[in-house]
Design a protein around this nucleic acid. Structure first.
Lengths: 316, 316
DNA sequence: TTGTACGCGTTATCAC
DNA sequence: GTGATAACGCGTACAA
């Protein structure tokens, strides 16, 4: 396998020039750059990431910290992880999984991707010595990437309106988290455009809880109603309750979920849902932390990625 | 962060001795070793994996090659991946995901973990320049790790016998793969111990196919029968067919699945199943390839890990 | 059993 | 804008 020196000889330049072409291309004249690039191509040169890591005092390792108790039967994290892995791979970075906050400091790394951070985590987040980006909205100024939750339920609500459901109800998650507020905001905003009055209920994020809630309050829900749900889990529960009560889906009752990762497809009827671009979120997380590392921890801001409305059988 | 030299000074030895304590501990006297280890501990020394990788001409990267078209909604691979990642992490190795055989040669690595290899893959497997281990039984002498499939269905069949089901039927997967043969062998062996005659049917690995098969052949299955299924998917289909035909589970019909990763828990009734130790399989895969790399590709043989019988509601 | 000297491939510093 | 030189931290001869 050819090295930097080989390329330098081939191109009749110094190693330094080759290195610059790789890391600081604009510090070298276009002509030279071209010559070097051609030499690299001819020799099928690939940088040795270990050597580069050593020389620049990096580890080429990014830690993926999962703070929440995850359900490994949920393919959500799988997709995220695949996206992250693929994103890191482009720059030959290693991935380490950390599932316990206590392990965060064990072993070196160049940066962190953190998911499941809550308000109370800011204590130790502020003490981290390496750059990090969060997966999931936060209101503390930390760099983050998330689905555009507000847009998601704008799409959902708009669709419910377009399908002429007379009453449109939001079934939220009973947690004071930014993503929930954003989803509710998307619902409220859109309803207001049409001068409709929002009706919001909140339950724990379990299908059973949602099902029980709907069943116990069945008389509140007249036919011609669409439920905008903050998760597919809740949507599944709502569907079951409606079926149990003999309601007709999608004719008399519409149900729209959120996530689009698994439950939407196994539900019967298949759920209309807001599908999060999870794999892409993972890729972007990787890209962002790599960039932040390259820029010595410079702030990267926030990135909201647009979800997609998937039309299926739970809406008319 | 302290280096090898720092430890050497602290312990009043040469760098070489410290290096040996790390890589070839038995080449150094116990007393010296102790002194060095204490020095390492005092300084909180951690080896710089980039430097070590560079010096020993390694990359510290292992590629995980997924040859089959995987269903990302199946948590199976998630668990496997988590296990692999954790195993590699112990030695600061990076993980790269490869999902296309064409990408196998792109970029360097020290070794491969390969899943989904078929007989026809041996052409290019033989040409790989770095060591590899397979996930999944094979009969070509390649190193591999898998669940002990035979043992699994020995457990299942034995349990069916213990529960006094009069007739015990095997519902296999219609594929000529080693794992399938092993599971059938476990079933057959155990039946023979009790001088019972095996009855084997095979269908595609889909719940729908299994369901249709049972439905269409319902008259062949008298009450007091237990179905040993080669996968939870098939088991789910069998359960549905029995319910559709009005059979009583588990009183008149028992069903035992295989995998224990997800479907067994969402099925109704919950499935008695043979649970594969998937996370541990992943860890072992990592350990094996790391060892093989360390030993310059020396053969590692095969490792069959014992699955577990999970008793639930689909057997009496 | 232990130590010395050098090289691994790259990047940063400083000259020119 | 480009090149010489010295690190980066560790492992492998080889010598003692």
């Amino acid at each position: 396998m050819p090295t930097l020196s080989d390329v330098a000889k081939e191109a009749n330049v110094s190693k330094m020039t080759v290195s610059r072409v790789i890391n600081h291309p604009n510090q070298v004249t276009p002509e030279l750059r071209k010559i070097v690039l051609e030499a690299m191509h001819r020799l099928n040169y690939h940088p040795n990431s270990a050597a580069s890591a050593l020389a620049s005092n990096r580890t080429n390792v990014v830690k993926f910290v999962i703070l929440e108790d995850i359900d490994t039967t949920e393919p959500y994290y799988m997709n995220l992880l695949f996206g992250i892995a693929q994103g890191l791979q482009k720059q030959q970075f290693a991935l380490q999984l950390v599932r316990d906050a206590a392990d965060v400091d064990k072993g070196n790394c160049d940066g962190y991707i953190i998911t499941g951070a809550r308000a109370t985590d800011s204590d130790w987040l502020d003490k981290l010595k390496k750059p990090f980006v969060l997966f999931g909205e936060n209101r503390y100024g930390y760099d983050f990437i998330d689905t555009d939750n507000k847009l998601g339920d704008q799409l959902a609500t708009q669709y419910a309106i377009d399908r002429n459901y007379q009453s449109i109800i939001f079934m939220g998650i009973d947690e004071k988290e930014p993503f929930e507020y954003s989803r509710e905001a998307g619902y409220i905003n859109t309803l207001q455009k049409y001068k409709k009055i929002p009706r919001i209920f909140r339950v724990a994020n379990h299908s059973r809880k949602a099902q029980d809630f709907i069943t116990n309050n069945w008389k509140k829900f007249a036919p011609d109603t669409c439920f905008i749900c903050a998760s597919d889990r809740i949507a599944v529960g709502v569907v079951r309750a409606i079926q149990e009560k003999g309601g007709k889906i999608p004719k008399d009752f519409g149900v729209i979920g959120f996530d689009g990762v698994f439950l939407d497809q196994v539900s019967n009827p298949k759920l209309t849902t807001i599908k999060q671009p999870i794999f892409e979120l993972g890729q972007s997380l990787a890209t962002m932390i790599l960039q932040k590392v390259a820029q010595n921890g410079a702030a990267q801001g926030e990135l909201l990625m647009p979800p997609e409305l998937i039309k299926r059988e739970s809406t008319r």
